[in-house]
Design a protein around this nucleic acid. Structure first.
Lengths: 202, 202, 202, 202
DNA sequence: CAATAAACGAGACGGTACGTCGAGTCTTCCT
DNA sequence: AGGAAGACTCGACGTACCGTCTCGTTTATTG
């Protein structure tokens, strides 16, 4: 729950956070192998050669550890905010890149965290603050640039439009259980997002 | 202990479906009270005055029972397919009605089932067949009527457009943790769905 | 903690206590192999093919289970109360017989229970009532017979004399760590118990 | 943090033994408060304001520390070897004095050490050498004086007789859980020890 | 008097066992 | 025959304690 500083505050030569990274990596691996429900703290401890006591010293619960693990995983990092010059290009770059939703691993990790969401409200808040917020902000930046370029209708409701693409894609992946390919992303963009964004409505 | 069947059908003492409904009702109540993770089979058995053996005789797992319970619950029944004469009216009727996503209970039950989805792939298939398919079909009927009325662009990608509204709303409810009110539904409709549906894009 | 009746009360055909005996036997075996401290509940569960939940359903703690196990073990049953016609003969029969203190296993089990004694006062009471009392009573019977035969001084303080022999032998075994052989028992008898019992003191 | 050493020995700043005494005293206190099983090394470290590393630098285990603590405690020091002029007087002085077995604290500490005895055979040897041997030797001295005075039968088996009194008293205290008062000591003496010692048996 | 090395307090760590809880199975009795 | 009751196995949970270890600081001796 409370990661220590990786930074070198004053005269602290030791890189404390390294151990933590190892543990979280073990957790991510097991998560991808077995899914959230089948992941056990004992298994994480075993693979990371840590003791359960250590895990619980830092994370208050399995759910908490999992969120942290997913959060820190390279496989679920924020998609790159590449400025391609168009809204369509930016969104494709963000959602189809190596950390985007078309990657199977990213989706699996996200699924794990969504399951964990429902175990604890306090935990859900933390997740939204630490995991979701950066993604949402990056998303808003993409739309802000599009707005500046004049691609968006001036009265566009960004609070609604911003989460639309991830919402539709997650629904397809988690609820419908269908794959999220670049083709699907493009169809969603061309069918829904871009028409809505350009706001050509009589 | 006490004969509970009304035994209406001629001389058949076994009223199979009725007992099942009682059990599922108990499950729904507990689901709304505690959520999926905190729901125990023992609690369901206790409240329904059934034995766990009976539960497992009819449902292969907790997840299975929960899906069934949610499926049969009045609170999560398919939204009424009211023909209001317009796509906007039909969708508002479907998603803001007494069984729509603006009802808190409906959302809670849906959340439970989503959690259950991740425990078993075989189970997820069943869920999609029995629970999701009817909803999707009804949704498609609404869009089909709109198409007949000429409200939709002729080349409209219904496979993508159909799930868009529930996807966006679920994302808002489950991932962002924000309420789904009629106002929100209307904003999604006016900002995204209808512009995309009418397909005014050159 | 609460053994069920092995007896056939009314119409209960099943011999419920049989399973319990298996578990306790496993515990006794492990006790003799590893001693009290190294004995784990998991090991008992494993060997008895029982679950820890079952163990804790019947016994409130490891200490409690161990006492029960020792109590029921044939290896620590009450020594036979053989009437040999003399106090010396009776005591040798009792303390050097197959269940007497000269048997290594009996002593090991006793040691285990003595350790367990110190974990819980409530538990210690139970132990004294169920485990110790029968042994003490048998011991008193031996002295009572000797009294009838006129072997004991009439004013003999049986409350003190009775526990003297086991006390001296336990001290030798547990505190001094020296073996308790038949020779030792006889020396204690001839040096201490019998002189005191016959009470020839001027 | 605060210099605690009195540094009396010439120029040796490190006053080893004094710190040790503080730690052992803390251990004794906690032992009397909670008993051996409930005593934790962390608690000792905390109360003595020492670190666990320090404890383990000097004592190889909890058992080892406890024996040392009991050994050094004033409350369990060897009973004074007062020459009262009679065996009866000497034994009463030794066992009923301020460090005798009639003191509740002495008995509690002894109980702790007996429990510790069963954790490690190597440790038990050490205990017998350092803790028990002096007591036994003192006991033997008492009997030796009695022998010189002609109070004992010349063929008296001192190896058996010597440990008899403590054995009987410990059994009463630890196994039977009954108090050891001066009255009890005198009854044991008059009923058992003295008749045996004076050896009036034809 | 400053530099060095030993011993220390603090407390995280790996490991092991604890006692609890829930899922899913199985047995018994009752209707 | 089938259901209620509930004990059972399995396995994960989160906690506690032991004994080890590393860290940075204090202390005493040395240069």
């Amino acid at each position: 729950m409370t990661p220590r500083a990786t930074a070198t505050e004053s005269a602290r030569p030791r890189v404390e956070g390294e151990r933590e990274a190892e543990i979280l990596e073990a957790a991510v691996d097991l998560l991808l192998e077995h899914g959230y429900d089948r992941l056990t703290m004992d298994a994480v401890a075993l693979r990371a050669k840590a003791s359960k006591a250590t895990l619980y010293r830092r994370w208050s619960s399995k759910a908490s550890l999992v969120v942290d693990a997913v959060h820190r995983s390279k496989k679920s990092a924020d998609p790159q905010d590449v400025d391609t010059g168009s809204l369509r290009g930016d969104l494709i770059a963000a959602f189809c890149g190596p950390t985007g939703m078309t990657e199977r691993d990213s989706t699996l990790l996200l699924a794990a965290v969504i399951t964990a969401l429902h175990t604890d409200e306090e935990f859900a808040c933390m997740f939204r603050e630490r995991f979701l917020k950066p993604k949402i902000e990056m998303n808003q930046r993409i739309y802000a640039r599009a707005m500046e370029r004049g691609e968006l209708a001036s009265d566009c409701d960004l609070e609604i439009l911003g989460p639309a693409l991830p919402g539709i894609l997650m629904h397809r992946a988690f609820i419908l259980g269908q794959p999220v390919t670049q083709d699907v992303v493009e169809r969603v963009l061309d069918t829904i997002i871009l028409p809505a964004a350009t706001g050509v409505r009589k």
